Structure formats: structure tokens, C-alpha cells
Simulated assay, not measured.
Amino acid sequence: MTDTQLNNATPKLSARGVDVFYGQKQAIKDVSIDIDMEHVTAFIGPSGCGKSTFLRTMNRMNDTVSSARVTGDIRLDGEDIYSPAMDVVQLRARVGMVFQKPNPFPKSIYENVAYGPRIHGLAASKGDMDGIVERSLTRAGLWNEVKDRLTDSGTALSGGQQQRLCIARAIAVDPEVILMDEPCSALDPIATAKIEELIHELRGRYAIAIVTHNMQQAARVSQRTAFFHLGTLVEYGRTSDIFTNPRQERTKDYITGRYG
């Protein structure tokens, strides 16, 4: 069993005994972990190990899969996110998701960012909305690149810019948690470096969990690492410990490249 909590940081998201089934197939087995505001948490492991499936349980993205069933307990600030009383639309505003492939809306750069705040009634005036758009694009490290072309289509941006636009879109509804599912896998090294720098800057403002296949990236951007294998959480600890002194043989084998 791994340590669920490593320090005195108050967990923002807390999972206990989580199982995920797709029909009869069990994809996640008894996973318990805390995600806090002070540390970026990386989920690593070979393809098909369940890390993305688990990430998606934390804002109920698995609800969109008819055969999916989630059991166990996941709480956001102590509130059961799978409770019938939970408003899923509100949950996904509080727990934003950035996907592997940048997916800007076929709208202007401005409207990509303004869409969420408009749906959730976060801006009382055009001036308020302008402020939200500028602030979100600034936090996503994109404002200086796009401030003179806000009416251009979001899909006209480069891949790396599109991904930062998607991060700005997630930030715009004032989330508490940002989940990132391999956000750099479709990007070149320069764009990847910008996203990693951005993750570093957003740490502390949001609780962040990132799925990555790239172990070097996990080592660079995270302070906590969770190693998944065959649907189980094998080991969870400080990133430095996981990469230099893993406690589990399976973790050591993966880190040293014996399988993956």
C-alpha cells in the first residue's frame, strides 16, 4: 500500500478505494490518492495502465461512456462528486480538463475563452468579459502573442498556441483544479517547454494533475508522482523519491526502462 498523503497540505481532491469498470472489465482497482494545491501530481505508467481513466474520474468525464461504472469515494473539498446532488456542469467548471489533442472551438480566440464565463454568468458586462479574457490568456502565457488578433479563429493558431488557448479556456471559468491528459504529446519540443513552464507558473493557484508518458517531463514538472500499472496504483510519492529511490520493484523496472 502506498502513502495517500505525504505532507500537511490540505487535499483539494481526495480519492479513496476507487474502482472503474467498462462493462465487465475492471480498468481501475482500489486507487486512493490526494491531489493538493501546493504540488503538481504526475500520473505515469505504460499505455493502458489506467492513468487517463483515473484522471477522468475526477471530473466525471467517464459519465460520457455508457458502459462505465465508478465506485469508491472521490471528494472535492470534502464534497462527494458522485453524489446525485452534484451539478456535473458546475463540477466541470471547478475541475477543468485539458486534453491530449488541442481542441479549440471553431470560434474566434476571444470567443473560445469567453464561452465558459458566458455560460456560467461570470461577467456582468462587456468590460468584465474583456477582463476575464485578457487575464485568462495572460495566465496561459498567450496574451502577448494574440492580443492584436482576438477575432482570428482559434483553429488558426499553431498546435502549441492552441493548447495554451485550451488552458486559457479552462482557467476562464475560475476552476480550482486543472486535469491535463498528456497535454504535450502532440507538440514539438519548443511548444512543450512553454506548456511545462506554464504548469510551473500555475502551481499553487490551482491543484494540478497531469498524465504523461514522458518520464523526463514528469520529473521536470511535478513534485508528486503516482505510478500506475495494470489498473492499480503501484506507488505514490515525492517525484524525487520515485525516480531515484522507488520502493516497489515494478516502479524501478519501469523507471529503468525494463518495460513500458
Rank of each mutant, 00 (worst) to 15 (best):
T2P: 15
T4D: 00
L6R: 05
N7M: 06
N8I: 05
A9E: 13
T10K: 15
T10A: 14
K12L: 13
L13S: 12
L13V: 15
G17T: 05
V20K: 01
V20Y: 07
Y22I: 06
Y22W: 03
G23I: 14
G23M: 12
Q24K: 15
K25W: 00
A27S: 14
A27M: 06
K29Y: 11
D30A: 09
I33D: 01
I33L: 15
D36V: 05
M37C: 00
F43I: 12
F43R: 10
I44N: 06
G45M: 08
G45N: 07
S47V: 09
G48K: 09
C49G: 00
C49W: 00
G50D: 09
K51D: 00
S52H: 01
T53M: 11
T53E: 13
T53K: 12
F54L: 10
R56T: 02
T57P: 03
T57E: 04
N59A: 11
N59L: 10
N59E: 10
M61R: 05
T64M: 11
T64N: 05
V65W: 08
S67D: 14
V70A: 06
D73I: 09
I74S: 04
D77T: 02
D80G: 05
Y82C: 11
P84H: 11
P84Q: 13
D87F: 09
V89A: 11
M97P: 10
P104K: 08
P104N: 11
K107V: 04
S108F: 14
I109Q: 09
E111S: 03
V113A: 14
V113H: 10
Y115N: 13
G116H: 05
G116E: 01
G116C: 05
R118G: 01
R118K: 15
I119V: 15
K126Q: 12
D128Y: 02
D130E: 13
D130Y: 12
D130C: 11
I132V: 13
V133G: 09
V133I: 10
V133C: 07
S136A: 15
S136C: 05
G141T: 05
L142P: 01
L142F: 06
E145W: 03
K147R: 15
R149H: 12
D152E: 13
D152Y: 11
D152G: 00
D152A: 14
S153T: 03
L157N: 07
Q162T: 07
Q162L: 08
R164I: 07
R164C: 09
L165S: 08
C166A: 08
C166E: 00
V173D: 01
D174I: 08
P175G: 06
M180I: 07
D181L: 09
D181G: 03
E182L: 10
P183T: 02
S185N: 04
A186H: 06
D188H: 03
A191W: 02
A191Y: 07
A193Y: 01
E196P: 04
E196V: 08
E196D: 12
I199M: 14
I199S: 06
H200L: 07
H200E: 09
E201T: 10
A207F: 00
A209Y: 01
M215H: 05
Q216K: 15
A218Y: 08
Q223T: 07
Q223N: 07
T225A: 03
A226V: 06
F227Q: 06
L230T: 06
G231W: 00
E235G: 03
E235I: 11
R238Y: 12
I242G: 04
E249W: 00
E249L: 11
R250V: 13
T251G: 06
D253T: 02
I255Y: 03
T256M: 05
G257Q: 10
